[in-house]
Amino acid sequence: MIETGKRRESAEQIAERNGIPRRDFLKICGAVAATFGLAQSTVVEQVARALSPGGAKPPVIWLEGQDCAGCTVSFAGSLNPPATQILLDRISLRYHETVMAAAGHQAEKAYHDTVKQGGYVLVVEGSVPGADDRFCMVGGRPFREILEEAAASAAAIIAVGACATYGGIPAATPSLGLGLDRALAGKTVINLPTCPVHVEHLVGTVLYFLTTAQVPALDDYGRPVAYYRTLIHDNCNRRGAYENGQFLTDWNDPAQKEWCLLEKGCKGPFTYSDCPIRKWNDGINYCIDCGAGCMGCSEPDFYDGMSPLFE
């Protein structure tokens, strides 16, 4: 018998309560036991627990709209903790087009089953075409429709990257990409902009939610205050050069190597993110350290409002 809340039920009863007839349940147990060469009696409890909501790892649906998969690649770069550990031990990734084993109908079914179950974390990468639904179709359906459906029964919604948060670059194209701020107007969405999402912003937010079951404190644009509180310009290690009026004009001159990039179009003075402190790629480098400057990719008016990038 298994303790579930106040009642004590048998594994079969739990399965039945979750819509799995006793005969099917025993079949599943038999298959699992046979596959792994285990005694059937040792697996019934685990199978029942896994089937009962709350007993299993939190389900995650990751949708891709008008995206480039850069945020997915960014996430896969997590080293501490390793991305595989998150994928295998912490979450149950039910749907992610770039990662999952299934394709076609099976992929669609995995998605529908999870949506029906509800209570999942919804991660969205990529924008929603505002000009015409047909600019982004998945499984024969408009991406917009899929997003609205998935958002309705999600426990939390996280928009990753510039495109999914505020529209990003696609917002300036003829397909008129919309971020969730407009595509899901009125819903609470945790926005993790930057193009692509910073892996530590994403992993930290997911772990925070899984641990506390709460949405972190957000700023006026729906960004976690913890990551987007400070102006890049205020934490920039070239700020001294800025104050001294030393502005880089020639990338070949080693003397100018650490000078301020304002004349190369740096958007640090009006961009909020902790990039200068956290840096990118496990602290190896980031936009200003590499001499290119900040393009303002964490701000709602990126890209159109930041263009021309080098002026």
């Binding site: 599943i28 699992v32 596959t35 792994f36 697996v43 685990q46 199978v47 627990r49 896994a50 089937l51 299993a56 790892k57 389900p59 994928l87 149950s92 990734l93 039910r94 992610h96 990662v99 999952m100 084993a101 299934a102 394709a103 099976q106 992929a107 079914k109 995995a110």
Partner: peptide, 13 residues
């Protein structure tokens, strides 16, 4: 598998 949750390795062809 014992936990009954092999996403994202299943479902599959």
């Amino acid at each position: 598998v014992q936990a009954g949750d092999t996403s994202p390795f299943t479902p599959r062809y």
